[in-house]
Nucleic acid binder design. Sequence first.
DNA 1: GTCTATAGAATGATAGAC
DNA 2: GTCTATCATTCTATAGAC
Lengths: 206, 206
Amino acid sequence: MSGQPNSDRRTVRRQETRREIVGASWDLVREHGLAGLAMRDLGERVGMRAQSIYSYFASKHEIYDAMFLEGYQAFAIWMADAVDGDAAPDPTGAARATARAFVEFCTSDPVRYQLLFQRTIPDFVPSPDSYAVAVGVYAEFRERLSAIGVRDQATLDLWTAMLTGITDQQISNDPGGDRWKQLIDRAVDMLLADTRTHTNPESEKA
Amino acid sequence: MSGQPNSDRRTVRRQETRREIVGASWDLVREHGLAGLAMRDLGERVGMRAQSIYSYFASKHEIYDAMFLEGYQAFAIWMADAVDGDAAPDPTGAARATARAFVEFCTSDPVRYQLLFQRTIPDFVPSPDSYAVAVGVYAEFRERLSAIGVRDQATLDLWTAMLTGITDQQISNDPGGDRWKQLIDRAVDMLLADTRTHTNPESEKA
DNA sequence: GTCTATAGAATGATAGAC
DNA sequence: GTCTATCATTCTATAGAC
């Protein structure tokens, strides 16, 4: 039959354990903060000694890297799902849906937001592979905004500032609540009006 | 003449050294990040052993607390100065000046912004005294926005989200530049238009 | 692959001589 | 008030037995 069945099984088992370790890491950073991830705690959580984890990941940064990659993949799926349901909605509706999806993704898991979109872990740099995925996913998001009418850089910068501003305030000053989230639609309307004023219709086709 | 001249001199000398330590702390956190402040480095910087600093501050948190207080006092002065120059400007001009002053204060010293307006040092809680000063200064800022026409909570939240969003993006993605800062006037115009739409003229006098 | 043992480097803070 | 000496803790990571 197929060659090296033992080897395959081992590979599968190994991948499962790696996933388990990454999953436990997410739990721990949600409890103790992103920088508070300790190999000892992690080992205890998955039922082995801290040193044994090095059989699966060469370093702690490699674990962060796996989380970083997983986070961006989750972001791509989340944003795709958020638009699938709507069959050709009006422009305002589409813009609101995109903005809501983005803020909801970020605030639903503050630590993940921190890992993906803020620079807060000392000395952590994503691997080239993970970074490439991140860049691709970000390009998708940019296209989504482009479809809404956000095309030039300055306008895009204004949108990202507004949406991350709402996100940050929500996370910092009303975690678990919706004090800033409920301002999303109002913010989008405001941004759309501004965008239409500042976008030259001629250059839109460029 | 006056009693206890020796004691007075000692007190003055002591205050000077405390100031020197706090100043060196600012330098160090700008170099190594807010969490990267180490007592050993600090001692080296002020020309004494790390242990000797404990004669001036009971703990590292007490040093953070002194920086926190100093930062809010600097904020109050900065914002007051920013408006003094303008003799009864038009409403839009006043709003722009306030927004520019706020963002400029924050981006001119990212670590200070982090200490004052973000929650990022593990286990650091300002002392009641310092916190009281912070609350007072924040109330002043709120009044300043109220003068611009920002009175209800939701509108205030939208303004803070926009201004901190611009600040965060500027610090994170274009440190030292002005890519987001140059959007301030546009953002203010946008916010003012929105604020006038959402504010009931009747309730403004309330 | 998991363990014990341990290296090696930081850190904040205290005790007590001077 | 400053020093030396030192404690106590925490952490990542490696070596080698089993």
